[in-house]
Simulated scan of single mutants.
Amino acid sequence: MKLRDWPCEERPRERLLRHGAATLSDAELLAIFLGSGSRGHDAVAQARGVLAEHGPLRALLDRPAQALLDLPGLGPASACRLHAALELGNRHLAGALERGEALTDPARAGEYFARRLRGLPHEVFACLFLDTRHRALAFEELFRGTIDGAEVHPREVVRRCLAHNAAAVIIGHNHPSGVSEPSAADRAVTARLREALALVDVRLLDHFVVGDGAPCSMAARGWL
């Protein structure tokens, strides 16, 4: 049975238009990108099969576009559409930080770090530079490491803050293991950075550790 033979009110596209994308399951959202299923399977059944064998959804979408080509039902067109959609989401979130609005919701910054760093196979340390009104100036990946660590140099962070004339900064790094709990080393480097930045009158607002689930905010933990 093909999707066009489903009752109109049950088809994923029609439900999305009537009730919004949030009402669709992972398989239904993926089916919209697949467009059609394989012999004997509609697009939703095909999507369920892909997720059952290669999911969950985030694990599937963390794959490079080229790797998606090896999965059943995901040809070049579907793989490109999926990664284009992910990049659109990243740019939409970045646009909210880049259009001159003051950053008043810390969770939005945490989500931005998660979008940029989650799923990377190695540890990356990044900075979001802000002006005196906490408007975004720039986002930079400053240090790259291995699967379990990245060496952070406070002097370089200070130098980049001065280059951007930043008044405040939010930092973040990912844990490829998926565990977002900050280590003792994470807390130690945060303290060193806060002290170094204070010498040039730059406030360290938060340090996010990105893993599976919501990123961990050190400011929320009371460690800043």
Rank of each mutant, 00 (worst) to 15 (best):
R48N: 12
V44T: 01
D70V: 10
A59T: 10
A67K: 11
P64N: 14
D62C: 13
H92T: 14
G49I: 08
R91P: 01
H83L: 10
E87R: 14
L71D: 02
C80F: 03
P64S: 15
L82W: 06
E53G: 13
E87I: 01
P72Q: 15
R63C: 05
A52Q: 12
A47S: 06
R63K: 14
A77G: 05
D70L: 14
A79Y: 01
A79N: 03
P64A: 15
A45E: 06
A47W: 03
L57Y: 02
L61Q: 06
G49C: 10
L88T: 03
R91Q: 11
G55P: 02
D62H: 11
L68T: 02
V50H: 05
L74H: 00
P56S: 13
R63T: 03
L57R: 12
L60R: 03
A77E: 08
G55C: 13
L82S: 05
L93G: 07
L68F: 06
L74M: 12
G73P: 03
E53W: 11
R58T: 10
A59C: 08
A67G: 09
A85N: 08
L86N: 07
N90V: 04
P64L: 15
A59K: 14
A84T: 04
L71M: 10
C80N: 03
A67P: 00
A47K: 09
C80Y: 00
L82V: 01
A47M: 08
D62G: 14
P72D: 14
R91G: 02
A65D: 05
D70M: 13
P72R: 15
Q66Y: 09
L82Y: 07
H92E: 13
